[in-house]
Design a protein around this nucleic acid. Structure first.
Lengths: 142, 142
DNA sequence: TTCCACTTTAGAACTATTCTAATATACTTG
DNA sequence: CAAGTATATTAGAATAGTTCTAAAGTGGAA
């Protein structure tokens, strides 16, 4: 596979992040990182990433796809988007933002944080801490 | 089981809704409707409703729980809340509103529509129609 | 270069949900 | 109001996404 997708600096940063989470820089992890982070913000499912890996000739098992996605999630390299009861989506954009979800295409589109303004939100009930605010705008193809 | 939970008028309205969706007013459907609609707004999962039915001595199979929840959803008697990749939640509140979701208690709390003000939202991309806007405020117990 | 903790993997296991096809029941019609 | 039929219910099998297991492989410290 083509490892030009990530610059040497990006690779170093990735290795640091992995090490910081106690994860070794293995061939499967680096290869999947190239697919994930090599071309702007992306949304993948385990299945779509596995298929993509297969297409570029990456011999990587389904178990490794799941393990890697979950480890990258814990390491803060990915975020999870919960919009579809049938599968989990992983997002390479780990900054705060929102989503369009096109139900009949099972496709996600990022919405930059500043394009959604929540001028009023309720306080968290007593005894609870705010963990995050997710806005999902559901769409149907016309 | 106690059928006093719903008034005769409510029962008539329910029968009408079911008929409008081509559904017969069977004993299991009416009994589950009493559990669901007999005491204010509620959030249930298939499992929690099944357990509740069992406790009140309602002999109803898991398949019927799933069938009934999905039929009530199609009939507009329930709405679905997607906040947890592990299970589907059904909400007896079918008006537009939002949710708190307490992750470590797998518990939902309704937020009335007027308590969340979205002063700016992006336009739907060309070719797509707006299907709904869901705001989920995730909480952790302190 | 060796060693060992960490990784990967195939396949089994698991969980939520849906499906199947046999039995039971609501509701219409005579 | 009895009978007939379309619709419901059910147990259990099937399915889909995901996680687990345990055996074989590998990164990187020394």
């Amino acid at each position: 596979m083509n490892f030009d997708a990530l610059s040497p600096e990006q690779i170093d940063r990735l290795r640091d992040k992995l090490r910081a989470s106690g994860l070794r820089s293995t061939r499967p992890r680096l290869a999947l990182a190239h697919l994930l982070f090599g071309a702007g913000n992306r949304h993948v499912t385990a299945e779509s990433l596995h298929e993509e890996a297969r297409k570029v000739g990456l011999g990587v098992s389904q178990a490794t796809i799941y393990n890697t996605l979950n480890q990258f999630l814990s390491a803060g390299l990915l975020s999870e988007v919960i919009v579809d009861p049938a599968r989990s989506y992983f997002d390479t954009n780990v900054t705060e933002h929102h989503h369009f979800f096109i139900e009949n295409e099972t496709r996600l589109i990022d919405i930059p944080l500043n394009e959604v303004v929540l001028s009023t939100v309720p306080d968290a009930p007593e005894g609870y801490d705010l963990a995050g605010v997710d806005v999902v705008i559901r769409l149907d193809r016309r």
